[in-house]
Design a protein around this nucleic acid. Structure first.
Lengths: 277, 277
DNA sequence: GAGTGGTCTAGACCACTGT
DNA sequence: CAGTGGTCTAGACCACTCC
């Protein structure tokens, strides 16, 4: 713990946390820091690497090293899904007015850039099981990114899958030109007669892949939350699966679990048992 | 992308993924790999560092470098909270039979080691707001770790806070010797007349702090999920706040959101609008 | 072209682990 | 003690950005 690179990292970390180095501010060049700390370049770079993985600094090749700026934060709440379902049966002008990302971020639509790409892909094992189709059966894959205008990094990266056989009942759903679709996926599903009963989110965290670092412009070593969202229809069929990558440092997920009340009888019986565990 | 360390990392990564190198197996010593790949030690170590941060290998000082073994996986589901609430009003022998961790992992109690530490702490700003007490008012802080017997690393690290004024209504709640308490926190709250109405989880991901790396024995660069769990009583008071650290690579969180049905009127009106977005 | 971070070398010594 | 990974040096050249 008393290695040179640890002490250099601790020194710079302290300067950032105490506001001596402000967000966006450029650090001295590496050669200069080498001179200031009296260490070799490798040792200095070991310290900077640690700070970069902690998300405190950003290094830009050919430009310099900067204290990292806080980016747009997003809170994604449970209520989002019911809100989307309610919106799907609203008149077109209401649906067109605002999307779910705006709801989460508080930004308006003109602040947001939206990109989409559609493709037909054969179902891999895990998705074939969920959709109850054969492995290799066609799925409609849709890649989405949403980002704040002027910010380089998307707020999230989404890959959504629909059963091609289901989606093709409405040919409009096969055309990426129709995006962003007013009312979103739940309205798209409504046009082929599907209503959602529930949505299951499965979440884990991991270091990003090289591709995700690229697309989401993640500082090296920052974590991502990996969400698989499975939408299930009122006839108990999986109708959409989305894999969503959230940058871990700028997204918070909020889930509220309502609990059924105790019966009065159970409660009083339990209380009578006494105060000890 | 065609740097030497990238190619070395890609080569070793492929060997691990193809099973040519098995979990637990020792890699060649660094000096040997330096000879095999014909690069300098720094370059080789840059490649190994990348693999370590991806969670593929573990390096042990003085011993060697090993392909990482898969550890016990945990899935924590929404149903857990209702299950805990139901269990809290069961007779003592039922409550004592099994804990929530066993439910998540499928392990039995004798497989698990449990440690706990209690302390009185003054409320910091954020907790004072939640509990609606003054900053500095006493809280009962409880630190928990649960780990699989024989495994070094805990499955999770939990810090739970109760309002001291509330908890002290039952002096048994102030003694860590009474842990593990049959029926858990929800039964503890029942003994002071509190029933939970709902639980709110807020989740984000980040690189672990140095302390968390130590306590959870995290491989370098693996992410943690940071969960703040807020329990709210039927009288709409925050009665418990827990900060839970989950190793991102071995824990999955599952949340199911049930959606209210559309009214038949809303549904048919929306369908009439046509198939276009 | 000047300035910056990214890669790489060839060597040295230290700290930890197990026999 | 031998074998291993951790730290560190002094220097070189390359790749990218911006003026």
């Amino acid at each position: 713990m008393a290695t040179k690179h640890d002490r250099i990292a601790a020194d710079l970390r302290a300067q950032i946390e105490m506001g001596r180095l402000m967000p966006g501010q450029k650090l001295h060049a590496e050669d200069e820091l080498v001179r200031l700390y009296g260490v070799s370049r490798n040792t200095l770079r070991q310290a900077l690497g640690a700070l970069e993985r902690e998300g405190l600094i950003v290094r830009k090749h050919g430009t310099g090293t900067f204290v990292r700026e806080i980016r747009q934060k997003v809170r994604r709440t449970t209520g989002r899904y019911q809100w989307e379902k309610d919106r799907a049966v609203q008149p077109r002008e209401v649906r067109a007015a605002t999307g779910a990302t705006e709801r989460d971020t508080g930004l308006v639509m003109s602040d947001l850039d939206f990109t989409v790409a559609y493709a037909d892909v054969p179902a891999p094992d895990d998705l074939a099981v969920l959709f109850q189709v054969e492995v290799g059966a066609p799925l409609l894959r849709r890649n989405y990114t949403t980002q704040k205008r002027g910010e380089w990094a998307p707020l999230s990266y989404v890959v959504s899958y629909l059963d091609y056989a289901v989606a093709s009942k409405n040919p409009d759903l096969l055309q990426s030109e129709n995006e962003p679709w007013p009312g979103g996926t739940q309205h798209q599903l409504l046009t082929v007669g599907i209503e959602l009963d529930r949505i299951v989110d499965i979440i884990s965290a991991r270091p990003p892949t090289a591709q995700e670092v690229d697309v989401l412009d993640l500082p090296a070593g920052v974590a991502v939350m990996n969400m698989r969202k499975v939408s299930i229809s009122t006839s108990n069929q999986v109708v959409e699966v989305s894999d969503i990558i959230h940058p871990g440092d700028r997204v918070e997920l909020e889930y509220t679990t309502a609990l059924a009340p105790w019966t009065e009888a159970a409660r009083t019986a339990a209380m009578k048992e006494g105060k000890q565990g």
